[in-house]
Nucleic acid binder design. Structure first.
Length: 213
DNA sequence: CTAGTGATTCCCT
DNA sequence: GGGAATCACTAGC
């Protein structure tokens, strides 16, 4: 008989740990986004850890605001922010309720529903680029601010979940400096990725921009 | 391949 | 007011 794919989500306890433990453990996991048109599944290939109020690179560094409120809530929920006037990026909240750590999903490989992802990513030249970069990933999965605060650990029909599945061997995960982080936050080697994976976004050091005249 | 820049709007100071 | 956890496009090597 045909095996039903196991779609059990990771339990909340998975996310209720220090973010530097959770981030490498998320690499290689399958994220399932259920849209009205059908499911899109993505294998997470690159993430970055943001260590709450201790971390100058974190949105929570300057305290709780309307935008980052979800980061201060319980683990296992999705924090979606809007940036650069056009893009969304998605994070998974970690650590106990009241703290504000999160893992930014930076890149992934679409493993199901590629035809749906392609419709949302018309400029992608090939399937490797569908979710290569945090805003591309959110676009490919149809993730916007309406999903901010979604519980990724809920059972039943949920818009987003990370499957428990099986972790990849830790020797397949590498780490290095975070990309795109301004200020002193760029010094930490808190970016984690699958070794030699073609969907990992290229490293770009943060470059401050002067306002054009 | 690298480097430079416009797009476009939300949010905090 | 002005920066922002980015992308897409262009020019040039």
């Amino acid at each position: 008989m045909i095996a039903t794919p196991d779609r059990t989500p990771l339990p909340r306890e998975f996310f209720d740990r220090p973010v530097l433990d959770v981030a490498p453990d998320l690499v290689g996991r399958i994220l399932v986004r259920t849209t009205p048109d059908g499911p899109i599944a993505l294998r997470i290939t690159e993430v970055e850890a943001y260590d709450g109020q201790n971390d100058p690179g974190s949105h929570a560094y300057r305290g709780r605001t309307a935008r980052n409120d979800v980061m201060f809530g319980p683990p296992g929920h999705v924090y979606v922010y809007f940036t650069y006037g056009m893009w969304h990026c998605m994070n998974l909240v970690c650590g106990p309720d009241g703290t504000a750590s999160a893992v930014l999903l930076r890149a992934g490989e679409i493993v199901e529903g590629a035809e749906l992802a392609r419709k949302r990513r018309l400029s992608a030249r090939n399937d490797k680029e569908l979710a290569k970069g945090p805003a591309r990933l959110a676009t490919a999965l149809d993730v916007a601010r309406s999903l901010n605060g979604t519980d990724a650990c809920a059972s039943g029909d949920t818009p987003l979940r990370v499957l428990a599945g099986t972790p990849i061997p830790s020797d397949q995960v590498r780490n290095g400096p975070r990309t795109g982080v301004s200020g002193d936050g760029g010094v930490h080697p808190w970016r984690f990725w699958v070794v030699n994976d073609p969907t990992v976004s290229p490293y770009r050091a943060h470059t401050p921009r002067r306002r054009s005249s």
